[in-house]
């Protein structure tokens, strides 16, 4: 057996699986999105019709779609900067030369990342309880009246953002921490000799050196946050007043509750295009900022 044949043999199983169970369905989704595949077609394929772009047009005329889009953008636009800022702050603290028990603190701050999203979302639902939740109890001690976190349309999404920051900041913290440790010490020494204050060192040494890492981390986080689903499913069921319906939540409801798989595929493609466009924008903006 030649090396090339062996290579094919080794790669073929995984490539076949990817082709059949990933690339083929992606192409099928595009086809599905221009049909009226619904519960009748599910029962009998003869009920399937080609409808062109009607699914897309209909989606764009539905208020719930725009609501879901707005909610998802709100979640991402507020959640990502908060998460990344928390990651940077935590990484700076853990990386400080003064810290003892660094390993313990890193593990403690990272722990939420590996927990099961559904399980911790349920914990938070109780922590956010208006009457018996620890969060309102803590705020009450500070003299702030009870907030109906998950029941008030103005607070439901901020609650989910708060939860997501808690759940996710550790992931980026570890990446930023590694990047911090790669910054050459002499840069700080030189800055120190020039009389730069701690803040100036952070602003003019740390941040520029972290640039590429922060770009990477924010691209990754944006892509993750666009896929918001389990949090509203478990914590709010999309409510109150549809204030936490996300694009993926809409896709799930459309596809697997109402069995409008054609329409749901159109939602999937819009989500994909949106993620693609935002990532491209970030890359463009990020590269521009670096030069």
């Amino acid at each position: 057996m030649t090396r090339g044949q062996a290579g094919l043999l080794f790669a073929a199983p995984a490539l076949c699986i990817l082709a059949v169970f990933f690339l083929l369905p992606v192409c099928a989704a595009l086809a599905l999105s221009v049909t009226d595949f619904d519960i009748y077609a599910l029962a009998d394929l003869r009920n399937l019709r080609f409808v062109g772009l009607r699914n897309y047009v209909e989606l764009l005329s539905r208020p719930l779609f725009w609501k879901a889009l707005g909610n998802t953008l709100y979640f991402t636009a507020v959640g990502v900067p908060l998460s990344v800022a928390a990651s940077i702050g935590a990484a700076l603290l853990v990386n400080s030369r003064l810290v003892r028990f660094r390993g313990f603190f890193r593990t403690a701050l990272f722990a939420p990342v590996v927990t099961t999203l559904v399980a911790v979302a349920i914990i938070w639902r109780y922590l956010l309880h208006t009457r018996y939740g620890l969060i309102n109890f803590g705020l009450g001690r500070l003299g702030i009246g009870p907030v109906d976190w998950l029941g008030n349309p103005h607070f439901a999404m901020p609650s989910i953002i708060l939860f997501s920051v808690w759940k996710n900041f550790g992931y980026n913290m570890v990446i930023v921490l590694a990047a911090l440790q790669n910054i050459p010490e002499d840069l700080y020494e030189a800055a120190g000799l020039d009389g730069a204050s701690a803040w100036q060192q952070f602003r003019h040494v740390t941040l520029p050196m972290l640039g590429p890492t922060l770009l990477f981390v924010s691209i990754l986080t944006v892509a993750g946050y666009f896929q918001l689903f389990a949090e509203p499913y478990v914590m709010t069921q999309g409510g109150p007043a549809q204030s936490t319906v996300s694009v993926l939540y809409l896709l799930y409801e459309e596809g697997f509750r109402w069995w409008n798989l054609g329409m749901a595929s159109a939602v999937a493609f819009i989500l994909f295009l949106m993620m693609f466009a935002v990532t491209a924008l970030q890359l463009r903006f990020g590269r521009g900022a670096e030069t």
């Binding site: 083929l24 369905p25 989704a29 896929q227 697997f256 798989l261 999937a268 989500l271 994909f272 693609f276």
Partner: peptide, 17 residues
């Protein structure tokens, strides 16, 4: 190139398959 495609795009046809 395929890395940028989110898994949810494949989800509906995969379910039918």
């Amino acid at each position: 190139a395929a890395l940028v495609i989110p898994a949810q795009v494949a989800m509906l046809p995969l379910f039918l398959m």
